[in-house]
Structures are given as C-alpha cells and as structure tokens.
Design a protein around this nucleic acid. Sequence first.
DNA 1: TAGATTGTTAATCGATTAACAATC
DNA 2: TAGATTGTTAATCGATTAACAATC
Lengths: 234, 234
Amino acid sequence: MPLSQVPKSHIGARGGIPDATVNRLPTYHRALVAMAARGIPTVSSEELAESSGVSSAKLRKDLSFLGSYGTRGVGYDVEFLVYQIARALGLTHEWSVVIVGVGNLGNALAGYPGFASRGFNVVGLFDTSSARVGESVVVAGCPVVVQHLDTLPEVMKSSGVSIGVIATPEAAAQSVCNLLVAHGVTSILNFAPVLLEVPEGVDVRRVDLATELQILAFHEQRKAQNALRAASAG
Amino acid sequence: MPLSQVPKSHIGARGGIPDATVNRLPTYHRALVAMAARGIPTVSSEELAESSGVSSAKLRKDLSFLGSYGTRGVGYDVEFLVYQIARALGLTHEWSVVIVGVGNLGNALAGYPGFASRGFNVVGLFDTSSARVGESVVVAGCPVVVQHLDTLPEVMKSSGVSIGVIATPEAAAQSVCNLLVAHGVTSILNFAPVLLEVPEGVDVRRVDLATELQILAFHEQRKAQNALRAASAG
DNA sequence: TAGATTGTTAATCGATTAACAATC
DNA sequence: TAGATTGTTAATCGATTAACAATC
C-alpha cells in the first residue's frame, strides 16, 4: 500500500514518539556526545536537562518514549543513552544527502562538520552556474566537485539518496524540488523562502533566516513596550 | 536558568499573541507581500491559508489575535493586512543588526536580500581572522567593511543595536555572546551549535543545521519502517 | 537499609479544529 | 435580499508540569 493511504493516526499517535519530543532529541544527543567525550559515565535527568535547557520533568518524559533506559537512584549511562537516542533518530545508519545550490549558504552547509559526524554523507553538490560547476569544495576533509544540476539524475541512480537540501535562490527552489522528488528524494531541507509543493509522503522542513529574525524582532519589541510600561507605572 | 529558546515567562500571558501564532506571522506576511506585488487587492482566509500552508480556521484564529481586520463576506485587504502584521511583528521600524563571524554562513546572511527588505539594517560585520578583517562585503547593495571584533564596543555605542547574529565556530560562540550582551544586545540569533548562557531578559533563538537534518532523518526512517510494515502486511 | 533518582500519573495548560452565528 | 466570508465558540487534542510511588 502506498504511504498516501496510511491513515494519519498511524503517524502521530499510536505508540509513536510525539513531535515535540523528536524535535528535542537532537539537543539531548548533542549534550550527551559532549559528555561522553569528556569521559562522564552517567548523568542524572537533572544534569542533562540543565545542559539541554529544559526541565528535568520534560526530559524524563521525553526519554520515557524511547524506553526505560535509566537506573533509579543512579541516572542514565551516557554512552548507552547516546546510542538509544541515535537509534531513535535514525543516526545509526548512514544517510546520503545531496545539496543543490552551492553559493555561500550551500558552501557553509557542505563544510559543516556536524553533518559527517552524525552520519550524513554529502554525495553530491549541484549548481547551474558555470562559475561554480567544476569547483572543488572540501566536505568532511575530502574534496567534492560541484556538478551541473543536469547530472543529478545519474547520481541519484547510483546512490540511495533520500534526503535533499535546497540552498538555491527563491526562483529556482520549486523546480529543483520537483527534480529531487522525481528522482526519489522523500525528505527535503529547504532554505529558500518558498512554501514548496510536494506530493503526499514527502517531508519538507523549511529554515528561513528572515523569519527567525522577525520572530526575534517581535519579542524585542515586546520587551521595549514592557520596559516603557514599567517605567511609566513606577 | 537559560531555557533553550525564548523564556516562557515573558510570553503568552496577559492578553499577548500566542507563541504558535507569532511563529506563523512571518509566513503570512511573506505571502501577503507577494500578493501585494502582484496587485491583488483582497484575499480570503481560504486563499491566504492555502498559500501559507495552514488551515483557514487556524489562519482566522491567528489573525483574530491582531484585531478584526477582515470584512465579512469579502475577505482581507492585502495592503492593510501586510501593514497590521508588520506592525505586530515590529517591522514598521528599522532594526540595527550586527553579524559576528563572516565565514561562508556569515556571508550568506549578510547578503540575504530578505533582511533589508524587512527593515533589518546590517550596521556591522565582525570577525577576528586577519584574512577577513578589512574585506568588503556587499550588504543590500552597499559595501560594508568587515571590522575586527575588538571594535564592536565602539560601533555599539554609536548605533542602537539590540539584535546580534552569531555565525562563529562553536568554540567562540559563548564569549561572543557575552560581548554582545555586555554592549546592549538583548536578542540573539545563534547559528552555533551551543546552548548559550544569557542573563534574564535576553532572548536567544538557535538555528542548528544538523538538528534540522536529524529531525528529517527521523521522519525518513519512520516512513521506511511504515513501508516495510505495509509490505509485509499486504 | 537510607538516600537518590527514575518512570508514570493526573492535572493543567496551550494549540488546533470544526462549526456557525454575525454581518458585510 | 442572497451569497459569501469573517470572527468566535466550544470541543478536542497534544504538550507541559508537579508530584510521587517504584526501585535501584
């Protein structure tokens, strides 16, 4: 049965891990990896929560969705919990990723050390600008040559790529998205400020730099208003 | 205690606009600006919701927190609603922004056209690398010279900067944060994969590229598992 | 055992949704 | 008026929180 026929109740509910929890797991994972690197053997929910910026109650609730991996009176084994979170997130196997658009942002993404260390292999860098095609970008210590977008279909055939990153200008994003989806990509990380149209079953996460700044501006404005109000009140 | 993102105590309460709504306002704003540019005079909640990727019920609920700016039987005046959302978000006045760290990511941010068009003025670019200091980066059509981080205090004195962007490597992020806060910054957009410690009253939003990919990987894994399950069932 | 800390419960809070009365 | 669409209501859903029994 195609995924489009899977009832929604299967996805969010029914023993699955809640969305809000999934969104916090990478933060816990990062904190735990840092602790493991410092040789810390066990951690309490209070400590891990503190270094993740959440309450300990929330942390324990989140971890309880993965299983019972702690020891009462002791805490959590750091290495073991790293593994369990990695497994839940799907980080225990490698993911092949292609990046389309190799401007400043695409370059920054390709060179980001956090990708390789979490099992994301950048197997292709694509652009349409003749100035960029043929250039070599260092990804995880190895040079990767920027290819023309026209060669994407071939690359997709030989490697099981299911994740694509769009770092193109706004105008190109939708057609790049269509190309990716047509060649088997089912998860897209989109940095272009566009709402992409995708078929059922394809997930898109959009990261918009201007949106983030605007939300900050809102809170900044609110603080200024509160300050004024407080000043006039007393 | 540094809650990971914007502290809750500041928000939500006291007749304010709910968090979830604030987070969607930039999307509505963008869609409306595009409509205004195409000369569309009015829009229904159904249409605006469609082009924002939300349900019309949610859209109307969201807009109702700003006020009653629609006309029953007609819809919303596009220009007017653009203005009202901009006002709610604090986009009706200019915000001065400094960016610290002018690597690929900092460059991408500085050159991002969406900033200037929404009233964000990049008044300073800072770095500590002698290779970058003195370089000129084109921001909103005008060249801006990268300055050494040591000169940040002076720049902060002359211009009312309350928003800072951290695009440095992980190791430098906390000390840069301290410097920004010491000189009056009260809102920080953080691209370094660290949980910043900030005093009460300072808001931080963290954007982590690896986190986004990991969340995608989770959903990708879930889809693969569902596909397997469906295959073995039928 | 005594102290510590988990995993779970139940209450609360906030967000979403469908439906529809209000009204242009 | 008749048709269209908003703004609001009330029900539901999901997330958060504090408290504590279970148990190492």
